[in-house]
Nucleic acid binder design. Structure first.
Lengths: 195, 195, 195, 195
DNA sequence: TATGAATGAGGCTTCATTCAT
DNA sequence: AATGAATGAAGCCTCATTCAT
């Protein structure tokens, strides 16, 4: 059971994003998602083993595409500086372009239980790997400090970007997000650079 | 209704931290907290209007004391550099010293609904004010960049520290947290400094 | 939500009458009604929005059928005297034939709160309309007093019948109820007649 | 325990009438009555064995005084006709003069459970005895029909008056009640009279 | 494949009553 | 006599999941 892919599979995921963004995680019943997707409640279970699986797949799909796309874009950039800026920009652009998705990833998905959080962290690793590769490249090039602790650097970068996006969401996206990429990049680059 | 203070008030808060840390927010029934606190279920409601109020008060109490204590410690430090280091150290020390509290603040509290998240953010403002005062002092002293965007700087600092702590918690505090204050401080200071 | 009709809808209503009559309104848990009806607790809520709605629907169904049936029977009678006797007889017969229902309507339903009482009164209006039509016919025919206050007359008729039934129920239906129709009718008719 | 009489005893009863009339039976907690009476919750239990006892005593006190007063007034009247009119008038006057009490006796007290209803019926017997004595006197005088069924006659009289009062209460006492005594008396007298 | 009616476990909260002071 | 803090039992309702069609 629980096939992957298919037209309804996508319908359900898109419905989940919309319903969760509009109603909040704890008020997004399976029946509500099914209705939004235009399928019967039971049909959900032909595509997903349980409710949690919808969330995991949702994040997997969105994050997978984003990481794939980001990878390609980063390959185009040549300098470490530009790569970090590009990464931050892509991150902010994607979420600014899809506010519903931003609500879900920054607020609602975090209301899930620890088990689900762990699964989400697993998926997140792909993205964190991108950050790591930039850091490592920077260190190898001698652009970043020698003794840089990669793990801390990664957490600083991700934590900073994530916090910036979360604040934007919680402030009801009343200001533009992408312009923040530049100053954010400056701070992070300076923080990592060899001086 | 819902008195503040009193021996039982404290008992219930401490019990809530322990029970939530051990069982997770969604598996922490009021009856479980009451039992741990050594009071009757109904007694909880003499001190808190509802279950959510326990969480809010819990965070209020802990954060209030922490901010107060931090303020005093920061006043002792004279340079901006040392103030930021001190802030980070205090943050990491407090949570390393109370792993249960760390679980609750980093993981469980975030599983609450948006309304509660907003209340938590209100309480958090006291702490963010401390960060702001350090940033402003640094800018005024000419130690930090002139055009520094305080809001972004605050989000970078808080986001970075928060992410470092969350990773430590999710990795089951298998490594020491406080030693990370020094490199974390270096990165953040460099990120903000005038070069 | 809350579909009307269906086999289970009827099952639940019948179960409610039985359970409430046997246990009393305040000791008739939803789970008890569900068990008696042979359905799951949750099924109740597919047919009724909440516990109160069971009571309202119960009264609506029983009263609706009774009023409909009474209307048809009254149309057969030609004189006002016989119409009133017929109405009283039908009233007593119905409740004597279903003691459980009598307990519920005379005793248990009145334990509900004012809001529910108002809903019940709304439903009751159909029946009171029958009484009114008899009174009006009697006045127009010159059989009843000219200056008869219809509202008071209606209250006297309903109050008298209702009290007679309630006494019968509270006396554990130890005597026959229908034989009381004749003397009751005599008193009421005399009370209203032009002399 | 549970003394009868005393200043606080009366305070509590008066408080109960007010609180129940204003909040409804099911929303009249002991603590609310205690507050209104200006005593501690526990003090209630020095005067009444339990919450039900407050209601019983309340009805006992009010009804006792009313029956006593009515008896005296009825003795003044000489004819059966005037006695019945007097009884009805006193009934309507008392409740019109104390709307809170009317709410409690006509609506709220009936929301109590069957056991309490039985106790209330016991107390009511004193009043029903007054009605009976009038009926018997009427029969003996030859003013009422010979074959009059006293029980039914009593139920008709009480049921009619009670229904009239209840309607007045449920219509928020928007009209005057006492003027209804005269037509009500006419109907009831005619209903019972020998023709 | 798809449906949707049916299931039933699980928990927050209220409030009458007690009893140490 | 009086207090009021503390007790703890008890129930309505939701919603993820199943399964007969």
């Amino acid at each position: 059971m629980a096939k992957k892919r298919g037209q309804k599979y996508d319908q359900i995921i898109e419905a989940a994003v919309k319903v969760i963004a509009e109603n909040g995680y704890h008020n997004s019943q399976v029946s509500k998602i099914a209705k939004e997707a235009g399928v019967a409640d039971g049909t959900i279970y032909l595509y997903f083993t349980n409710k949690e699986a919808i969330l995991i797949s949702l994040f997997e799909e969105k994050m997978g595409k984003f990481v794939q796309h980001s990878k390609e874009q980063l390959d185009i950039e040549t300098s470490v500086e530009n790569k970090l800026l590009r990464l931050i920009s892509l991150h902010l652009e994607q979420l600014e372009a899809d506010y519903n998705l931003a609500i879900v990833t920054q607020l609602e998905l975090r209301q899930s239980n620890i088990a689900l959080r762990n699964r989400i962290n697993e998926i997140l690793k792909g993205y964190l790997g991108l950050i790591d590769s930039i850091i490592i490249e920077g260190v190898e090039e001698g652009f970043f400090s020698d003794g840089l602790d990669i793990r801390i650097a990664r957490q600083v970068i991700f934590g900073a970007i994530d916090e910036v996006v979360t604040n934007w969401v919680m402030k009801d996206h009343r200001y533009e997000l992408t312009p923040l990429a530049e100053p954010l990049n400056q701070m992070l680059l300076n923080g990592l650079k060899k001086h």
